[in-house]
Design a protein around this nucleic acid. Structure first.
Lengths: 208, 208
DNA sequence: GCTCTATGAAACGGTAGCGTCTCGCTGCGA
DNA sequence: TCGCAGCGAGACGCTACCGTTTCATAGAGC
């Protein structure tokens, strides 16, 4: 599942491997529990049981539920392989396909409703979540900026709005409609926003 | 076992005005509390206290927290005045403007994260929420269909995807980015999706 | 005015999670 | 090999909420 690296805040050297192991397994369990029962339903005892550790071990490393959840969300990484080759349009399709796929089944997708809920209650969680989302969207905006430069994306468009038009529908179908966003829908989506793209990318010079 | 009322809203005549008043004030309080503390944090006692009624009064009308929340969500109405005059484009702008406005501040917006969370845990809540969302989106799809008929919206587009492109960004900014979606963004959004139409929608010939 | 019933308040036992603590055990590093 | 620190297990007092029950009050309909 989540092969999270201990790259959280531990710039300091972890001496004892037992500590590192405990922290890793507890954070992973926290995400599992969070996805299962949500933010309000998450309990420290449930996380400890799911991690197979004692409750006191959790309290040894975190003050309580809130700090634990914050740390767990911080460790939530996006399993997205950012493409570097191909036209901008092709790369957008790939990125959105991965987005739709991870929206259908991933730790992140499972935790998303709980994170949204938690962000609503706790400012720190909101900051963390907004940062993660903003960074991810910025990559798409950068990709679109490249598309504007080479003519694949029309000039004059607000690329942030355009990026939200690409990401928003996937989010809407996951959270509000509870229906999948399949590959053909991604094609429709990109065609809607970047024009009726021809299968051949050689005629990228199309502005009329 | 507590019997459930066949009608959740106002279909059946309530004999005693005290009963009607209790149900109304409790459901309203349930939405307030839901928006304040979320689904997991909502308690029957908090709802009763916020409604200014006794706890036993709540249990007299609902089996428990789940049925109460379901009923409250069922009664959550969209405060959207659907426009009937003007071009399709103008009406789309009005609808999205209202959407963005109610996203910024409304009972519905306050409760949305909690409802999303609740829908994730309870199938009944999911069904209710999906129905509400689907109905609202369908109105926009119908509007776009009218636009296709009179040439304001290009042919061949998947109108459901298009509707999600219009609604998705507003949702994304509310839930993930926690930043407002103002009027100018609505204009950008519509321009992005329905073509760069200034006040005059005469440039409908774009798909050729 | 007189029932009749919905109501508010409160007490009740039961359950669940909190956060702290102690106590052996064991893996780690020296 | 030894000392230490992290560990699990669990008991603890505490608080909050659950869902039920009782009872006196007051508002509604006749």
């Amino acid at each position: 599942m989540t092969e999270s690296k201990p790259s959280t805040v531990d710039a300091v050297v972890e001496l004892d491997p037992r500590v590192e192991r405990s922290r890793r397994v507890i954070l992973s369990a926290a995400l599992d529990v969070l996805g299962d029962v949500g933010y309000g339903g998450l309990t420290v005892e449930a996380v400890a049981a799911h991690a197979g550790v004692g409750k006191s071990t959790v309290y040894r490393h975190w003050c309580g539920k809130l700090e634990l959840v914050e740390d767990a969300i911080r460790n939530l990484k996006a399993a997205v392989a950012w493409p570097t080759a191909g036209t901008v349009r092709e790369r957008v399709v790939i990125v959105l396909g991965q987005m739709a796929e991870s929206m259908a089944e991933s730790t992140w997708s499972n935790c998303l409703p709980a994170i949204i809920e938690a962000a609503e209650r706790d400012p720190e969680v909101m900051t963390i979540h907004r940062r993660l989302t903003t960074e991810r969207r910025q990559l798409l905006v950068d990709l679109l900026t490249e598309g504007v430069a080479n003519g694949e994306v029309p000039h004059g468009a607000d690329l942030y709005v355009l990026a939200d038009c690409l990401l928003g529908p996937i989010l809407l179908r996951r959270l509000l409609l509870h229906e999948p966003f399949d590959t053909s829908a991604v094609d429709d989506l990109v065609a809607q926003l970047l024009g009726p793209g021809p299968p051949h990318p050689d005629d990228a010079a199309r502005a009329s």
